[in-house]
Design a protein around this nucleic acid. Sequence first.
DNA 1: CGGTTGATTGAGGCTGCTCAAAAGGTGTGG
DNA 2: CCACACCTTTTGAGCAGCCTCAATCAACCG
Lengths: 259, 259
Amino acid sequence: MSPAGAPLTHPTREMPANSNALIRRLQSLSRLTPTERSALWELLHAWEWVPAGAVIEREGDCSGAIHALLAGLACRHKDFRDGRRQIIAILFPGDLSRNLGGAARPTDHHVRALTRAKVVRIALHHLEAVIEANPGIERALHTATIVEGAVLRAWIVNLGQRQAHERLAHLFCEIAHRMANCDLSRPDGSFELPLTQKELGAALGLTSVHVNRVLQKLRAEALVEFDNGVLRIREMERLRGIANFDPAYLSNWGHGQAP
Amino acid sequence: MSPAGAPLTHPTREMPANSNALIRRLQSLSRLTPTERSALWELLHAWEWVPAGAVIEREGDCSGAIHALLAGLACRHKDFRDGRRQIIAILFPGDLSRNLGGAARPTDHHVRALTRAKVVRIALHHLEAVIEANPGIERALHTATIVEGAVLRAWIVNLGQRQAHERLAHLFCEIAHRMANCDLSRPDGSFELPLTQKELGAALGLTSVHVNRVLQKLRAEALVEFDNGVLRIREMERLRGIANFDPAYLSNWGHGQAP
DNA sequence: CGGTTGATTGAGGCTGCTCAAAAGGTGTGG
DNA sequence: CCACACCTTTTGAGCAGCCTCAATCAACCG
């Protein structure tokens, strides 16, 4: 809890680095020096809460800023004119709205808060200046981009090859692992997941009606409980078997430190 | 053909940089100095041809090397034990088997030649040394990663929301644009695309039987011709309309130079 | 010529969609 | 406190997109 303030020059007593989701994330991807941690900390103090449903970044935006999610859940999604919506990715605390290096391009999708969310806007020139002085941060950000790419590929496989119940099972497995990585799981393994069935459908390429029926089947087989925005996976092993889920893609073996 | 052992002081007459697909690609993503171009050239002289179907990189591989595709087509794909296969991405000349920074992790999918392909293996430590001396190369590689991410997101939308005929139309549009970017289109806009209907199905999450029927419909409406491994889009505008295709995600506006 | 691979066609069936309506929950205003 | 609107979940009936299985045809190759 307390900052573990090992002074280099003298990293402030005010920097509870471990309480910041982005710093925690980057630290798990690549080692950060105390200087780098405090440089990050400087970027992140002007956060604010936004309500569920708020648009964090609009499609077409090229305002020269990126946003970091510090608490809550968000998603990337693309809307069609006829009402179809695809959720492309789910963002957890510590995720960024854009990848470094692509920040100058207009975004091709919306980023939206799925829950009340703690968000900080980071001006691009500001971030670049910090990176300039702290190459370790750049390395960590690029590693984050790599892991995100692996998740996108897993989603493609999920949408392309699996049937509805396998698809939902896989999504639940992924979310459970990422929740645990963010320390958002309760002791019994359950966690808050305030997604509607419509939103699950938008992530899975299914209608909310069908999600409902599939969910009932998973419930009936005592695999999961999902009520009141809380998901509890009762039999992870069987669920993993159904989904053919392998969590390797979510971690960063090989580079930096392992979780 | 000949390795062009150029001293980096004088940018040799032997370096037809524009004849190398990777150099051309990176150049289009970010400006490269002559020194950087020749440093890249050094990395790429030991290429070889591999036959169609050859595995370029195996799932689970962590050999400390990445592969660059210099000619031909390749794909990333994931296989299930029961025979299902999803093609996750199509690689064009100038694409890499892995993203820089993730090269030390074991790959989570196969990379396979779709046609006879010109491939060069690049040892990781070698690449890192070159990047160390030429930061412009690193920037270009990261931009390539960003663009690749945009393509993955477009595939997720395609698989999740579009019906078979829209899906196929979208894939054809994407391929046509990327072919043109690689100067692989003929004057009449047609190009070689030696994919089987089974492979198209594996990319689109459809069976080859259904791909066949959808293809017939597109043909019947005079939208495309697809015979003998050659695709010709006869009415790009209408095809784009069906697919709801917007090519913006394939380019790199904002950073470096525009195509 | 037989063997193999890919394209094509047909019949039938299942998964997941559409349309519709009812039930449960929540917040708002009278 | 109730009435009302609104959203989400749930359920049902019918349909359609896509799959499965199977067979035929065409091209290529040793």
